[in-house]
Simulated scan of single mutants.
Amino acid sequence: MLISNIEVVPGKRVTQHLGLVQGSTVRAKHAGKDLMAGFKNIFGGELSSYTDLLQESRQEAIDRMTAQAQSIGANAVINVRFATSAIAAGASEILAYGTAVTLEDR
């Protein structure tokens, strides 16, 4: 399945527009990781545990979006975007969404 953040894929033609697809996940911070992040805030540096958490969350959202697209017969999702929102203290949603289409070579 092709996943792209552009509207037109070079060398391909959209043959069917199947509509909006999305996938999301809600993740909470781990208390131990939060404590270590607090130390990083004092001394500086990348919060690698949060970087990993967000990467895993984005991948889960993409996987769910892709599964939804496959279930309706798409072979690509174009114009993919991400959105985030705070759900509760220490928990956030990562949303991936795009347009499910079928593509074929020109």
Rank of each mutant, 00 (worst) to 15 (best):
L2G: 09
L2V: 10
S4Y: 14
N5W: 03
I6Q: 10
I6N: 01
V8E: 12
V9C: 10
V9H: 13
G11A: 08
K12I: 00
K12D: 12
T15A: 09
T15G: 12
T15C: 13
Q16D: 15
Q16C: 04
L20I: 12
L20V: 15
L20P: 09
L20D: 12
Q22M: 10
S24N: 05
V26E: 08
V26D: 11
A28G: 13
A28E: 04
K29D: 06
H30K: 09
H30D: 14
G32E: 09
D34V: 11
D34I: 00
D34L: 10
L35T: 13
M36N: 06
A37G: 13
F39E: 13
F39P: 00
K40D: 00
K40P: 02
N41P: 03
F43N: 05
G44V: 06
G45C: 04
G45T: 00
G45H: 01
E46S: 13
L47W: 00
S48C: 08
S48E: 03
S49K: 06
S49M: 01
Y50I: 00
Y50G: 06
T51H: 11
T51E: 08
T51C: 04
D52I: 05
L53P: 09
Q55P: 06
Q55V: 10
Q55L: 11
Q59H: 13
Q59Y: 11
Q59L: 13
E60N: 09
A61C: 01
I62A: 02
I62Y: 06
D63Y: 11
D63P: 02
R64S: 12
T66Y: 08
T66E: 12
A67E: 14
Q68R: 12
Q68S: 05
S71H: 08
A74L: 10
A74M: 07
A76S: 13
A76T: 01
A76E: 10
I78R: 07
I78D: 02
N79S: 14
V80R: 02
V80N: 03
R81S: 08
F82R: 02
A83L: 11
T84V: 01
S85P: 00
S85Y: 01
S85D: 13
A86E: 14
A86S: 14
I87Q: 15
I87E: 14
I87H: 07
A89I: 05
G90V: 00
G90H: 06
G90A: 04
A91P: 08
A91K: 15
E93N: 07
E93M: 12
L95R: 06
L95E: 06
Y97S: 11
T99W: 14
T99K: 07
A100K: 00
V101W: 04
V101A: 03
L103S: 05
E104C: 06
R106K: 11
